[in-house]
């Protein structure tokens, strides 16, 4: 099945630093996408449902 293993790497000699690098990029991407979607797309999409300034007046 094409899994040509050229060397055995055990648990203690393996540091997934490639994974760590990718996941740091992912972290940054998620943060930027979130900030953009929340503060630009959502907050800018007015009007938004707001609390009434004097909510007791009607109650």
């Amino acid at each position: 099945m094409g899994s040509r293993v050229s060397r055995e790497i055990g648990h203690d000699e393996y540091d997934p630093w490639g994974t760590l690098s990718l996941i740091v990029i992912y972290f940054v991407a998620l943060t930027l996408m979130w900030l953009f979607t929340y503060f630009v797309e959502f907050i800018g999409n007015t009007p938004t449902v707001m609390g009434m300034i004097v909510p007791v007046m009607l109650g």
Binding site: S6, I9, Y14
Partner: peptide
Amino acid sequence: MEHGARQRG
């Protein structure tokens, strides 16, 4: 996956 990739060289 990275473990596999590293084992594959």
